[in-house]
Amino acid sequence: MAPAPGTGPRLSADGQVRLLTKVARLYHERGVRQTEIASMLHLSQARVSRLLKRAAELGIVRTVVVVTAGVHTDLEEQLEARYGLLEAVVVDAEGDEQDVLAALGSAGAGYLETTLTGGERLGISSWSATLLAVADRLHPFRTPGADSIIQLVGGVGVASVQAEANRLLSQLASVVGASPTFVPAPGLVGSPDVRAGLLQDPAMGSIASQWRELTMALVGIGSLAPSRLLLDSGNAGGPLEQQHLREAGAVGDVCNRFFAADGSLVASELDDRVVGIDPTTFREIPRRVGLAGGERKRQAVRAALLGGWVNVLVTDVATARALLAD
């Protein structure tokens, strides 16, 4: 905040205005503390404080926010207004998908470090390279940022890839200072009967109750074509199932729940084989943070916003502009 040069109110240059201007310049331009100003001008500190407040009211002092390069508050505010988001985080990301992934990982880590203040019950998607990038960039919390972290879909898969899902949960929980809960089942099983049997297990019943108590979700937004991590894990539908989803209008997913371009749920036979949080329970979580970017995912991101699948978005500048241009 600084005195506005030559743009102040049309006031007579009497002693009061001179005093207001002098106090404002000392405080805002020269960085002199209020106690020192009081001593210099033989005023009480309370009066100095009142003069500074009055200078702001009269327009002698005006606030100017200087936007740092790489900060996109204008785009963030437009996204929040356009899609009814609680918050948007937009970051610079130039290059290929790996560059976008790295940028989103850093932005997601920064978001968690500033918003996880303790007491959260956090759910995370199990098969997300973006969330792995977040976990790798998080700094350890000095005090616990969340009480618990739980997988939102089954984290069992091909052994070499399951290690990544396990690392994601373990590392996030360790850094944040929360207790982890694994879902001891595949995210996608072979038949509805297998899923029904798993859900009757007392351990899965306990996990389902925890899903209903979540205060926050952290998820990747998937395009219709599965990511390499999900595909390699064995938890993605096959080519025929992908074709059926495409014919039904699906453009993307969150936690293996597929939606159309308008964000509406696309029902498919996969629904009865997913071991994970159901769509209704998921969308009742108060804060649902989606991380995604890059040209390949733009249609899916837009659909996720329209359908209310996420209400906080972390994305790149190009995707943000595309979302606002639609």
Results as ranks from 00 to 15, higher is better:
residue 2 A to Y: 13
residue 3 P to H: 05
residue 4 A to E: 14
residue 7 T to A: 02
residue 7 T to L: 01
residue 9 P to S: 01
residue 11 L to G: 07
residue 12 S to T: 04
residue 14 D to I: 07
residue 14 D to R: 03
residue 15 G to Y: 07
residue 15 G to F: 04
residue 17 V to A: 10
residue 20 L to A: 04
residue 20 L to W: 08
residue 22 K to R: 14
residue 24 A to D: 07
residue 26 L to H: 02
residue 27 Y to M: 00
residue 27 Y to W: 08
residue 33 R to A: 06
residue 36 E to F: 03
residue 39 S to I: 01
residue 39 S to R: 15
residue 41 L to T: 10
residue 44 S to A: 15
residue 45 Q to E: 14
residue 45 Q to M: 00
residue 46 A to C: 07
residue 53 K to C: 05
residue 54 R to A: 01
residue 55 A to R: 01
residue 56 A to K: 03
residue 56 A to L: 05
residue 56 A to F: 07
residue 59 G to I: 00
residue 59 G to K: 12
residue 60 I to T: 08
residue 65 V to C: 02
residue 70 G to D: 15
residue 72 H to E: 11
residue 74 D to L: 13
residue 75 L to K: 10
residue 76 E to K: 09
residue 81 A to T: 06
residue 84 G to V: 04
residue 85 L to C: 07
residue 85 L to P: 07
residue 87 E to Y: 00
residue 88 A to Y: 01
residue 89 V to H: 13
residue 90 V to L: 05
residue 90 V to T: 04
residue 91 V to Y: 05
residue 95 G to K: 14
residue 97 E to S: 15
residue 103 A to L: 11
residue 103 A to F: 06
residue 105 G to N: 06
residue 108 G to N: 08
residue 111 Y to W: 15
residue 112 L to H: 04
residue 118 G to L: 10
residue 119 G to F: 13
residue 120 E to C: 06
residue 123 G to C: 09
residue 125 S to C: 09
residue 125 S to W: 06
residue 125 S to H: 02
residue 127 W to F: 11
residue 128 S to A: 13
residue 128 S to H: 12
residue 130 T to A: 14
residue 132 L to K: 09
residue 139 H to K: 14
residue 139 H to P: 00
residue 141 F to A: 08
residue 147 D to Q: 14
residue 148 S to W: 14
residue 151 Q to S: 11
residue 152 L to K: 08
residue 157 G to I: 03
residue 158 V to I: 13
residue 159 A to Q: 15
residue 163 A to P: 00
residue 164 E to L: 05
residue 165 A to Q: 05
residue 166 N to I: 00
residue 169 L to Q: 01
residue 172 L to A: 10
residue 173 A to K: 10
residue 173 A to N: 00
residue 176 V to T: 03
residue 178 A to V: 01
residue 180 P to Y: 11
residue 180 P to K: 12
residue 184 P to D: 11
residue 187 G to W: 07
residue 188 L to M: 12
residue 191 S to T: 11
residue 197 G to D: 08
residue 197 G to I: 13
residue 197 G to V: 12
residue 198 L to A: 11
residue 211 W to E: 12
residue 211 W to L: 09
residue 212 R to P: 09
residue 213 E to H: 12
residue 214 L to P: 09
residue 215 T to S: 14
residue 217 A to F: 10
residue 218 L to A: 15
residue 219 V to S: 13
residue 223 S to I: 00
residue 223 S to T: 01
residue 226 P to W: 06
residue 227 S to W: 13
residue 233 S to W: 15
residue 240 L to H: 00
residue 246 R to H: 06
residue 247 E to I: 02
residue 248 A to H: 09
residue 250 A to V: 09
residue 251 V to L: 02
residue 252 G to K: 12
residue 254 V to T: 12
residue 254 V to K: 13
residue 256 N to H: 15
residue 262 D to N: 11
residue 263 G to Y: 09
residue 265 L to E: 07
residue 275 V to L: 15
residue 278 D to S: 03
residue 279 P to E: 07
residue 287 R to F: 11
residue 287 R to G: 02
residue 288 R to W: 12
residue 289 V to W: 08
residue 291 L to N: 14
residue 292 A to D: 01
residue 293 G to Q: 07
residue 295 E to F: 14
residue 315 T to M: 10
residue 316 D to F: 11
residue 318 A to L: 10
residue 318 A to Y: 02
residue 325 A to L: 02
